[in-house]
Design a protein around this nucleic acid. Structure first.
Length: 702
RNA sequence: GCCGACGUAGCUCAGCUGGUAGAGCAGCGGUUUCGUAAACCGCAGGUCACGGGUUCGAAUCCCGUCGUCGGCUCCA
């Protein structure tokens, strides 16, 4: 799978306005964390959280198409009641902060998905320890029940007030309201400027607000973080105080209860409890290791992919995890992607005076980037190797390895390739964002005529998987190019762009897939589809990508002989429906809350013996032998614990099926079946129970 | 990468304003022979992330490093 270069095209990432439409490729799957918990979930205990949540997820439409413009007044008027309340809460927050630190300077204070924040510039570092104090002031302001008063002013009046420090202040101050003045500059000349006042606090604000501060029923400050003014790292860093607010105390309590419930599903927590994977400091950050129980899941996914792909006409290949620099120079990745790759290994065996110490350190003196820059040492014979960050160049080389005829196309090369990406430390996140990954990758080389069928088949595969895993909420983001930027951001092949986009669009339309079109976010080499999914606890991320590439095959001079005996360049489709093991397993853990279906379950069957009679133990062992002979992951618990203890341990590990066997079962050649989450299902003949297990696994029953 | 919080036994956590480091679970050794979510007794287990500093004395205070987590989109 290759990489969209657009993030690096202008030297810095292109960040769109909303997380839901951030340009992503599989390569740099940007994980959007935070919980998309519905603001307006009504009542209910933690128990119905997931019901509420699912309802929310189903109804949720990502705000596609939000552009770089400011919110219009019309859009503001559409703020929900809850958003108004939270917006007002942010003003109350600012009021409270000013009562304690009158010199505070405020920037923006909007409602957000799960609450509100206000960005503040203040020499004092606000810490959670300050929250109590701030909340106390907020409560006073709410109790005072001041009205939110809208005041329209001329631009000049607004500027005068800003210069006197009166905007986002309790009174006039020595320092001007610098951020507010900057904001006024950006208000279109034809737009009215308004202030909102509650008590002594006056803020530049377009509204809308609730009627009075007393309407803010319940609130709580949650966290403090830093944020750049206007999100630009060139701007000063501000302190962002987050909080949330609801109409009633009960709703607030429910919200925190939901967060607690969500935490229980967190893949990092479950991964530890269920012994699925570990991260070890000595191995390195972002380099997860799968324990046997987690590896079992990975193996099942691989088996699924191999079977599915084999049936779909893919051929498996195997390629190394490293390659010479020259490969990435030719493929065109290096300039775009070097900073996301681990620094190269330098092989300097041919050097005469090598005095490298045993603990060889790669050159990092000049900020690490030095090591990644092309070699300047002209006189030295050195060789650089990179750990690969993507598999496509290797696969392209396999395409090129043999003379290719149109008769061989489409050629579909698949590999569970291991890649290494030097993700920035702050972006690492459990299994979801890592530095070593195993990708369900394949590259399809085809002719333009074959493209639509191939692309459609890939999408069909996605849908098949979604169905299998019960993924109901997904969105395909179809990223297209901007013709005005051909030759700059996008390769200058107008006809190929037109054709592939048209073909892709038709495939999407005809298949009834849930998709949106996002202009100007294609990869430099072709249109792409990112698949976005929502885990049940509201994490949203790009799971997979499907990209059209008509540029790399040319760069690497891939050709096939066509009917007319001329050499032609194939179109390449990069696809990874199951994404990476790391991310997909992380997703599945949260999706299933660790309660995996039988076929995926790390431990499918556990035999629990009642007592340790020798005959009973031998009976248990014979069942395990039979199951294992059929490739079932079965274990036996013949410890000296009482049966209740064995049951509890198996339940806590979320073992899918338990066979409880005692003397009664031994005598009847039966097993008592207990299924995780469903309790005791009673005794059944041994052969029948085993047959059912085998059947459920074979069908990959949910 | 930047800002902030955090880092105590395998796990979950306690350890006040500096004075010999604790519990439960897991592990190990016994005893127990139990029919569906924890039988009992005992033992062992920690350079309090790492490195410096302050101090008579540091898990505790200060500095640095590493790691983890939360943010770093939605503007008045």
């Amino acid at each position: 799978m290759s990489v969209s270069a657009n993030r690096h095209e202008r030297g810095r990432p292109i960040i769109s306005r909303h997380a839901a439409i951030e340009p992503t490729s599989h390569a740099e799957i940007k994980l959007i964390c935070g919980l998309n918990v519905p603001g307006a979930v009504s009542g209910g205990s933690a128990a119905n959280f997931f019901v509420s949540f699912l309802r929310f997820v189903v109804n949720f439409t990502p705000p596609i198409g939000m552009k770089d413009e400011r919110k219009t007044l019309e859009q503001r008027e559409q703020m929900t009641d809850l958003e108004r309340l939270r917006h007002s809460a942010s003003h109350v927050l600012a009021t409270a902060i000013l009562k304690i630190w009158p010199e505070a300077q405020f920037a923006a204070g909007p409602p957000v998905e799960n609450g509100f924040y206000y960005d503040v510039d203040l020499p004092h570092r606000i810490s959670p320890d300050d929250f109590e104090k701030i909340e106390a002031e907020m409560k006073k302001e709410i109790k005072a029940n001041h009205p939110f008063e809208r005041i329209e002013v001329s631009r000049d009046e607004a500027l005068q007030l800003g210069k006197k420090g009166r905007l986002a202040g309790l009174g006039e101050r020595a320092e001007p309201s610098k951020f507010k003045l900057d904001i006024i500059e950006n208000i279109p000349p034809d737009e009215k400027i308004s202030l909102y006042r509650n008590g002594d606090f006056i803020d530049l604000c377009a509204g809308p607000h609730v009627m009075r501060t007393g309407n803010i029923g319940a609130f709580k400050l949650t966290t403090v973080a830093s944020a750049y003014y206007k999100g630009d790292e060139k701007n000063p860093q501000l302190q962002r105080v987050y909080g949330t607010a609801f109409k009633t105390k009960k709703e607030l309590d429910d919200y925190f209860a939901m967060l607690e419930e969500a935490k229980k599903r967190d893949h990092r927590k479950l991964g530890k409890e269920l012994e699925l994977f570990v991260l070890d400091d000595d191995v390195g950050p972002g380099l997860p290791m799968f324990l046997p129980r987690g590896a079992a899941i990975a193996e099942e996914l691989e088996k699924l992919a191999k079977e599915t792909e084999f049936a779909a006409g893919y051929q498996r290949v195997r390629t190394p995890d490293i390659a010479r620099e020259s490969l990435y120079k030719k493929s065109g990745h290096l300039p775009y992607y070097a900073e996301s790759m681990f620094p190269p290994m330098e092989l300097e065996d041919k050097l005469p005076s090598l005095s490298r110490p045993a603990g060889f350190q790669p050159a990092e003196e000049e900020g690490g980037q030095a090591a990644r820059a092309p070699s300047q040492a002209g006189s030295l014979t050195s060789d650089r190797y990179y750990l690969r960050a993507m598999n496509c160049p290797h696969h392209h080389k396999l395409f090129a390895a043999l003379p290719r005829s149109y008769r061989e196309l489409p050629l579909r090369l698949a590999e569970y390739g291991t890649d290494y990406r030097y993700e920035k430390s702050g972006e690492l996140f459990g299994l979801m964002r890592v530095r070593s990954l195993h990708m369900n990758d394949a590259h399809i080389y085809c002719t333009p005529e074959q493209f639509a069928d191939e692309f459609n088949a890939v999408n069909e595969m996605y849908l098949k998987y979604f169905k299998l895993f019960g993924i109901e909420k997904y969105l395909m983001r179809f990223s297209t190019h901007d013709p005005a930027r051909l030759g700059q951001k996008f390769v200058d092949e107008p006809e190929l762009w037109r054709q592939t986009e048209e073909m892709t669009r038709n495939v999407l339309k005809n298949s009834g897939i849930n998709y949106v079109e996002v202009p100007n976010e294609a990869a430099f080499y072709g249109p792409k589809i990112d698949v976005q999914v929502w885990s049940v606890i509201g994490r949203e991320f790009t799971l997979a990508t499907n990209q059209v590439d008509f540029a790399q095959p040319r760069r690497l001079e891939l050709v096939y002989k066509d009917r007319d005996n001329t050499g032609k360049t194939p179109i390449c489709i990069h696809r990874a429906p199951l994404g990476t093991h790391e991310r997909f397993i992380g997703f599945l853990i949260e999706h299933y809350a660790g309660n995996f279906p039988l076929w995926l379950s790390p431990e499918q069957v556990r035999i629990l013996t009642i007592g340790d009679d020798a005959k009973l133990i031998e009976y248990a062992r014979s069942i395990v032998r039979e199951l294992r002979a059929h490739q079932v992951r079965a274990e036996i618990d013949d410890s000296s614990d009482k049966i209740n203890g064995k049951v509890q341990r198996a339940e806590q590990l979320k073992v899918h099926t338990m066979f409880v066997i005692g003397k009664r079962d031994l005598d009847a050649d039966a097993v008592s079946v207990r299924v995780h989450g469903r309790g005791n299902l009673g005794a059944k003949p041994r052969s029948e129970s085993i047959a059912e297990i085998l059947q459920a696994i074979k069908e990959r029953r949910p």
